[in-house]
Design a protein around this nucleic acid. Sequence first.
RNA 1: GCGCCUGUAGAUCAAUUGGAUAGAUCGUUUGACUACGGAUCAAAAGGUUAUGGGUUCAAAUCCUAUCAGGCGCGCCA
Length: 558
Amino acid sequence: MNLREEIINDILKSLNNEVSKEDVVVESPKERSFGDYAVPCFVFAKKLRKSPIAIAEDIKNNLDESKYEKVEVVSGYLNFFVKKEDLTKYVINKINEEKENYGKSNIGENKTAVIDYSAPNIAKPFGVGHLRSTAIGQAIKNILEKNSYNTVGINHLGDWGTQFGKMICAYKKWGNEEAIRKEPIKELLALYIKFHEEAEKEPSLEDEGRAYFKALENGDEEALMLWKWFRDESLKEFQKTYDLLGISKFDSYNGEAFYLDKMDGVIEELKEKNLLKKDQGAYVVDLEDMPPALIMKKDGATLYMTRDLAAAFYRKKTYNFDEAVYVIGNEQSLHLKQLKAVINKMGHDFANNMHHVNFGMVLQDGKKMSTRKGKTVKLHDVLVEAKDMAKTYIKNADSVDVEEVSRQVGIGAVIYNDLKNYRTNDIEFKLEDVLRFEGETGPYIQYTYARIMSLLKNNELKDIDFEKVEINSYIWNLVFKLYEFNDIIVKAKLGYDPSLLAKYVMDLAQEFNKFYGNCKINDGDDNEKAFKLKVSNSVAIVLKEGLRLLNIDAPEKM
RNA sequence: GCGCCUGUAGAUCAAUUGGAUAGAUCGUUUGACUACGGAUCAAAAGGUUAUGGGUUCAAAUCCUAUCAGGCGCGCCA
């Protein structure tokens, strides 16, 4: 059943196909009393040389109106009212049959998508800035799977680059092995900051750092040993953050260093195709309408771009992806554009299937947080704080696993806060907003779910006679919302936009709470009671599944 | 300087991508469990959509100018 399509087809038929399918826009009116669906007829007016109202009337007259509860013409709009009983029966039965599989789409069948996300930088704190890529990326991965895609989640670790030369340099000058073993990230960060402070006074340090990176790329043993040590210690610490977030593992942890021996092929191909140009000692690829892409430094060391190129080719070869999604911040827009442009210039059209899913920065006092100046808020600290805060809310401590539930709720708040708004907006980091559990927050939705579960605990679900059921406006809003779940799954995929799903789940929870607050559910005759319980159960199933896609747990008690 | 992005209630964000009376949440004020979980519900107040001009049946949305902010622009990632 696809109501939107039926309406489009009905209209095309009524107008003898004098307009094309693309002209027919089926909207959901903002004022529900206008109808369940609305079609503005103004667009037809020019083609048919008639007034919109007359056209709307024509369509209505030629239409098989018995399919709908009601069709109305109001000031140029054609408003459709769906038959409530039919849709209710269909939706409720479908959800109770399909359970958590409800809403699945097959648009990605036999397709593979590679999602590059999270990607924290080794030897630097896992800051709140990196939550965005992690949360958005994980949600997109889940949403793609719900659309039947095969997915490959890649944590493209920032584990290579000049910064490691600087780090090694700093360690050799001021480092202390003991201290690093104790608190690796903290010490390494201190070294990194010191390096930049000193470099400001003594610019030659920068060259020294670059030389160490060059040595690293050339396979210098001591440098490699230090690098590996930093990497191992960092990963151990990152895992604690992933555990709290409930992200068990990525399909691949191949970071930048992994492509060390895979860059030559790319450089060879660039040379062969005559795209590489020497400029001021460095090698670049010239591009139209944008600055050239830097491929190799004058000392022969590679760059971010070089490794990203190698990664793109490796992923195409290894996974043969239909789509590659890069969940990376706005500030790298130019880099991603250049990356695609270079691949296109090399004559590979898979660049067209690479998508930059960009997002806004996390700001503090309106400014970017700078690792170099030590101005980052550690994500782990925020998550722990959220968890502790959640603990204070939990009431009946004897029947719930307090540790686990407070983790779920606290983290739910943090993740929801990150996903609820459209990605590309910059967000100001305010701890008090992140730790809110009331209103438009993750815990609000979790609470709604827990409430339904408690309602269902002592009442078993029974079969319903749909003929005898009364569908009030609260229930109808819920049913219609439930029906739209599949639309949202598809739309969220097409726009790579988890916020659509986040808003949907919120809407559904709000509608349910209105229903709950205004109608007694466990009341009425047997059939009515069973009906209301089954609607509630359907809401619970969709809430839980929606939250799961956002990587938020739904505890049964909280 | 050039390029990209943003500007909507006191705050944080929506607005079906050009559609009907611009909606939520927080905060403020008021009300609701001897009823299924008060992390809830019901309600009030709060807007010249940064500003000026334009495009059309229709503009928060498109074009244009101005103002304000953010990001990026060769050897960082």
